[in-house]
């Protein structure tokens, strides 16, 4: 049980890190395109700044938002797995993907159609974030030892 909780937290942490990675890459790639002097050092320091500030300095801690989304999605996946015979990592992967996609799509509805996550503005950005959700869920499904 404790191990499962740890795996859950790790998958939420992984998803959070990947979303922040996407946010950082998205902003810095554009800055590079307008000839701003972005270096690897700046990339790493910005990424670590974002890790701290997006979880403690923004309107809502990102990890809490992702945690709520993924816990809900994993719960649904676990219930469905009782009746549906699907590969467990894939099932949790899909659940993770749906969780992140829901966050990305629902957040603008709460903010006058504004994308608070800059990395989620484009279809490509949304797709990448959804894929990251899948990866995090897949990780969770893969490390679960106990069969549902």
């Amino acid at each position: 049980m404790m191990k499962n909780i740890l795996y859950l937290l790790l998958s939420i942490l992984l998803a959070t890190c990947l979303v922040i990675f996407q946010e950082t890459i998205s902003n810095l790639t554009w800055l590079l395109s307008v000839e701003m002097p972005v270096t690897f050092l700046i990339f790493f320091s910005t990424f670590f700044d974002n890790l701290l500030l997006m979880n403690g300095g923004g309107a809502v801690p990102l990890i809490a938002l992702i945690g709520m989304g993924m816990c809900s999605a994993f719960l649904v996946a676990r219930i469905l797995l009782i009746w549906v015979n699907v590969n467990k990592p894939v099932a949790y992967g899909l659940a993770g993907a749906v969780a992140i996609l829901a966050i990305v799509l629902l957040m603008p509805l709460a903010f006058y159609n504004l994308d608070i996550l800059a990395g989620a503005r484009s279809i490509l950005g949304k797709s990448i974030l959804t894929f990251y959700g899948f990866l995090s869920g897949y990780f969770f499904g893969s490390v679960l030892k106990k069969k549902v």
Partner: peptide, 12 residues
């Protein structure tokens, strides 16, 4: 400034 999510819009 920083973004409302807390993210760095630009480090410059």
């Amino acid at each position: 400034g920083k973004d409302y999510s807390g993210a760095t819009i630009s480090p410059f």
